[in-house]
């Protein structure tokens, strides 16, 4: 326990150093606005991927409606800052809570489904959310919610990303998290052991949804606009791709997936004709040779690094 805390502190320290370096480079204008935007996008995608990973990777429920929750967060947050002039932090909380409540309400009935059925239900759900928004004139309907101030910046995104990662990491290592993992491994066995599987599925779903809402609020407050076209099922698939690419059930895998895919997409922006082709080919090759994702369900952690450099080996997970 003590060792874990120490490790957490060390990681947090590293994160702060990393933040200081990037922020310094940003302020010195060495990282231009284009890459700044993509770094912010990476942060938002990490939150999305990590929260989807909690549902898909750790609890083993196949959800593909994440864009819907993101949309709820984006719009609720935008309404709070634009229409009610509330501070940004309240909007962030509001976006997360709203998405979480929706996740809870929807999770209760749908999580009784499993496998393909749940996938279809969540896919439909994401679309329902998007189309509902499309038909609410109060938030701009089909033309999108405009005039959102850019309140999110690298600092916000970075620390919320770190918060998300620590939250989910600690959740996974708690008894609740282990209950979730046991559901993934064998639902019947978990139930036999006295785990209330529906409760834990709904818990994971709700938490995943609320972090997606948080990411949505950041998203709309960085890009000045919340538009239904940004939250189609293609976005859900993007997030899913990040998770699967990085490795289902690996925290660092989700982070790796989010970072890689966002930067690849950005780097290929100069070759519009080939962008989607290269992107897709790299995914196909990866899935052919590494179907479990880049990291599988392993984690990159300090102890592995230590082991590689000849230090003591401590079992992870």
């Amino acid at each position: 326990m003590q060792a874990l805390r120490k490790q957490d502190l060390l990681l947090l320290g590293l994160a702060v150093v990393f933040y200081a370096i990037v922020q310094g480079l940003l302020m010195a204008d060495i990282i231009g606005p284009f890459w700044e935007l993509n770094i912010v996008l990476v942060g938002i995608n990490i939150i999305l991927a990590a929260s989807l990973n909690l549902i898909n990777g750790f609890t083993g429920q196949f959800s593909i409606g994440h864009a819907g929750f993101m949309a709820v967060g984006a719009y609720v947050g935008a309404v709070m800052t634009v229409k009610f002039s509330l501070p940004f932090i309240v909007a962030l909380a509001g976006g997360a809570v709203a998405a979480g409540i929706l996740g809870f309400l929807i999770g209760l009935p749908t999580l009784r489904l499993s496998g393909d059925y749940l996938a279809i239900a969540t896919l439909g759900l994401g679309e329902i959310i998007r189309i509902t928004i499309l038909n609410i004139p109060y938030v701009g309907g089909a033309s999108g919610f405009m005039g959102i101030p850019r309140l999110a910046d690298f600092t916000w995104v970075f620390f919320l990303t770190i918060f998300t990662l620590f939250f989910i990491k600690n959740l996974i290592r708690s008894s609740h998290g282990r209950a979730c993992i046991s559901i993934r491994e064998n639902e019947i066995a978990a139930e036999t052991m006295g785990i209330d599987t529906t409760r834990y599925k709904v818990l994971a779903f709700t938490i995943g949804a609320s972090f997606a809402g948080l990411a949505g609020t950041l998203f709309s407050h960085y890009f000045y606009i919340a538009h239904p076209a940004s939250f189609t099922f293609m976005r859900s698939f993007d997030i899913l791709t990040m998770v699967v690419l990085g490795g289902l059930g690996s925290m660092t895998g989700a982070v790796t997936g989010a970072v890689l895919l966002t930067f690849i997409s950005a780097a290929l922006a100069s070759y519009p004709e080939w962008r989607m082709v290269i992107y897709s080919i790299s995914l196909i090759i990866l899935m052919l040779y590494r179907p479990q994702g880049l990291l599988g369900d392993k984690e990159i952690s300090l102890s592995i690094i230590k082991r590689l450099t000849g230090g003591d080996s401590r079992a992870e997970n």
């Binding site: 606005p33 998203f219 100069s270």
Partner: peptide, 19 residues
Amino acid sequence: ADNKSEPAEAANATTKLIT
């Protein structure tokens, strides 16, 4: 630059073109 028919990507593309 391609914006994938999506507002956020359009913002990304214009930022890239300008900066």
